[in-house]
């Protein structure tokens, strides 16, 4: 496994991931124009021209600034949704698998029910309901849209990670050391924290990376459908805004598409490496 960790592809992946996180955290400190500043004299400038590293879009916004700011929004949405969904889903999944019985039946049925609505359709429905104003002439604020997006995607993630947590717990809950701890009179809570959680966590972690990729794609899809974040605030939203310029200035959408794709590839690759490492560890046991 160390050979994978040292491999060029893995280093590249981690480097890319670090770069995106750097953008998200330290973006405002970078010497870049404000993402909302309009360059009237530089519309649809192609990359590396007129002092704009990644060019400008048809409104005269600097694309690099948009990407850096968008990283913050896209990562905020996906990390928060996966973190919240992971915590809630794991809590439900682990407890269900540990308690078993009726509670477990109800939980797994509910997971199945939620999972039987395709991801994107479910989040679309949630946003449609939660982000609606009574008066159709009052637009929903960007802040509210982001909140609603996070809530919807969290709800989508809960059963995905919850199922993984449940399955992993089931495979650990009957191991000797858990039974031994039980027979010694340990409290359920301490058994879960000491014996189950540390063993189940890596599996959840591996899938969580894949889930971040899923959420980034979902966020972009929703923006593209007009149900996500408006005004080029996130990467998906930049793609959505550049769609009409695809014929004469394709770089406007290609650049955010590349950022989305590479970030999703990185997430999947890291998740894959964690999973493989896990399989090997399990094989050794």
């Amino acid at each position: 496994m160390d050979s994978v960790k040292k491999s060029f592809a893995f280093r590249l992946t981690v480097a890319w991931f670090a770069l995106i996180i750097f953008f998200a955290v330290f973006g405002p400190l970078l010497p870049l124009p404000n993402w909302q500043e309009v360059f009237d004299d530089a519309l649809s400038v192609t990359p590396l021209k007129q002092g704009h590293l990644l060019g400008t879009d048809s409104n005269g916004y600097d694309i690099l600034s948009g990407i850096v700011y968008g990283a913050r929004i896209s990562l905020f949405i996906s990390f928060t949704a996966v973190f919240l969904g992971g915590v809630i889903g794991s809590a439900i999944g682990i407890s269900a698998a540990y308690v078993r019985g009726k509670y477990d039946y109800v939980v797994s049925t509910l997971f199945n029910v939620v999972l039987s609505v395709p991801n994107l359709v479910l989040s679309l429905a949630l946003i449609a309901v939660l982000a609606t104003n009574v008066d159709p002439n009052v637009p929903t604020s960007t802040g509210r849209r982001i909140t609603v997006l996070v809530i919807s995607l969290t709800i989508v993630i809960i059963p995905i990670l919850g199922r993984i947590a449940r399955a992993a717990t089931l495979s650990w809950a009957n191991r000797e050391f858990v039974l031994a701890a039980r027979s010694m009179g340990s409290k359920d809570r301490s058994i879960i924290w000491r014996h189950i959680v540390p063993n189940v966590l890596p599996a959840i972690f591996a899938v969580a990376f894949l889930a971040i990729g899923v959420v980034i794609v979902a966020e972009a899809s929703l923006s593209l459908l007009g149900a996500g974040v408006p005004d080029g605030t996130s990467w998906g939203s930049m793609v959505a805004r550049g769609r009409n310029d695809i014929e004469f200035a394709p770089h406007i959408i290609i650049i955010p598409l590349i950022f989305i794709a590479l970030t999703v590839i990185s997430c999947n690759y890291i998740g894959d490496v964690i999973r493989k490492q896990l399989d090997q560890r399990q094989a050794k046991l």
Binding site: V217, A220, A261, V264, I265, N268, Y269
Partner: peptide, 8 residues
């Protein structure tokens, strides 16, 4: 390719 979203 498995990581590139279909809309891209």
């Amino acid at each position: 390719f498995s990581s590139v979203p279909s809309f891209a």
